[in-house]
Design a protein around this nucleic acid. Structure first.
Length: 459
DNA sequence: TTTTGAGTTGTTCGA
DNA sequence: GTCGAACAACTCAAA
């Protein structure tokens, strides 16, 4: 790359190229905030973030014609539609004798970089993790450029992209929870490294704790902070003896789960729509609209499930432990296809990610790579008691249960009538009765799996 | 090529 | 109350 030449900093808002999955509502909200913040930061250096909506190819052709640009740079993407678009773009630009360079901006390593001894992609997490941590060294973080002044050309406003919800504007809870943008990301990382990292292995499972996890996922998704930056900061702290190594490595392994999801997506482009393990094509999922409605609304009658679903609706986020509980509940207790859940999360999560969301739903359902065995059905009662022991999380998101004593908080249907009355609860009115019985639903899920086995053996 | 050990996150049951 | 075994078998990865 030649230096000293002006840069056009371009964001193409492409909703029209073929095959792209439309962003969900929460993701659009974050994107709008993030772009606005990014534009402000660039303006401070005297530059301009140029925003254009349209197909990537058409927009680039226009920009090149307007500016006489001779080089184009971008960070690589890994979804199948995005790869197809970027491959075509690269071919077109090179045909026009443009310099094209692409980079890895969003992962630690490229999905094809780390392979087994047989040069095949890893399909099991632990050996992948071992291979990555023994070879990966995070590159140094470069300082942001002080001046980014380029040509001032026509640009759309962020507002014109129509990313913010109106009529109704449901984004109040998101607004109160998040600070999209690089500064917010760095702050979250620093807060985490100042203490919580040293108790991460335990506390990451506690949705009732404010700072048990980093909550960096949406920032990572939107490229406001890179995994390499996070890795380097943690590695530095370990070397300096500042962090407990075991806890810090547990944290890094979670970052590598994100990488592993991208390996799975790269080699399985249909990860969000097809069973990774096609045996699951035979599983007799049920189609129960009422059950799905109750699940989405956080009205299942299981407090930890309902708390999670309401946290999601209100803040665009759900604690990871609770994600597993609600996902197990939907796919196993309610026997609804994992895609129903994947779709809902896609629409409502601020960190909705094509790789992590699909891989994690399949993992829970049992159809995914290195998946939970099907007979591992989370018990929403004991999970609640174990990971929200004082009920802080449930009381926060299900305030109608606030006055129940801890002993029956996760099992309101077991409270005697005097206790319920005293807590101001009428089951079936102020809070639902359980929509399924745990033991019955568990057995139904195990039976469904048995039919799958029979069908597979017969085939 | 064959063999061997291992595999994110759990629950239930019975001693 | 605590603890270990059973829950399935299969596929992956490396020796």
């Amino acid at each position: 790359m030649k230096t000293g030449r002006p840069l056009v900093l371009l964001y193409i808002h492409d909703e029209v190229s073929p095959g792209l999955r439309a962003r969900g509502g929460a993701s659009r909200w974050w994107l709008g905030k993030s772009l606005a913040e990014h534009a402000r930061q660039i303006e401070k250096t005297g530059g301009q973030l140029t925003i254009r909506a349209g197909g990537a190819e058409e927009v680039l052709i226009d920009i090149i014609a307007e500016t006489g640009a001779t080089s184009v740079f971008w960070n690589r993407r890994y979804g199948s539609a995005e790869r197809a678009i970027d491959t075509d773009l690269k071919a077109m630009l090179r045909k026009g004798e443009m310099d094209v360079s692409t980079f890895n901006g969003r992962l630690l390593t490229e999905p094809w970089d780390i392979t087994t001894g047989a040069s095949t992609p890893y399909k099991v997490f632990t050996p992948y993790w071992k291979a990555l941590k023994s070879t990966y060294r995070a590159p140094p973080v470069l300082a942001a450029p002080k001046a980014l002044g380029g040509p001032v050309i026509e640009s759309q406003t962020v507002e014109s992209l129509g990313l913010q919800p109106t009529d109704p504007d449901w984004s109040g809870g998101l607004e109160a929870t998040w600070h999209p943008g690089e500064a917010g990301a760095i702050e979250r990382l620093w807060e985490f490294l100042e203490g919580p990292i040293n108790t991460y292995a335990q506390d990451r499972n506690r949705p009732d704790l404010e700072r048990g996890t980093t909550r960096l996922s949406p920032h990572l998704h939107f490229g406001e902070i890179s995994p390499a930056q996070v890795w380097r900061a943690v590695q530095h702290g370990i070397s300096a003896g500042k962090f407990d190594e075991s806890n810090a490595m547990t944290f890094l392994s979670e970052l590598v789960w994100r990488e592993f999801s991208y390996v799975l997506l790269y080699y399985n482009p249909d990860l969000a729509t097809e069973n990774y393990n096609s045996d699951f094509d035979l599983l007799p999922w049920r189609a129960d609209c009422d059950a799905v409605k109750s699940w989405r609304a956080g009205q299942t009658g299981y407090p930890i499930v309902d708390a999670g679903m309401r946290q999601l609706w209100h803040t665009g986020y759900m604690h990871n432990r609770v994600r597993m509980i609600v996902a197990s509940f939907l796919t196993k207790h309610l026997l609804q296809h994992w895609q129903v859940g994947e779709d809902w999360f896609w629409d409502t999560l601020v960190d909705a990610d094509p790789a992590a969301n699909a891989a994690s739903w399949q993992w829970t359902a049992g159809s995914g790579a290195d998946a939970a065995p099907y007979f591992r059905v989370f018990n929403p009662i004991t999970q609640g008691q174990k990971f929200d022991p004082h009920g802080t999380y449930v009381r926060r998101w299900c305030p109608e249960l606030s006055f129940l004593p801890d002993k029956v908080l996760h099992t309101p249907w077991e409270a005697d009538s005097a206790t319920l009355k005293e807590a101001g609860i009428t089951l079936g009115t102020t809070y639902p009765k359980p929509i399924v019985d745990h033991a019955t639903a568990r057995q139904r899920a195990l039976d469904a799996y048995d039919t799958l086995k029979e069908k597979r053996n017969a085939a």
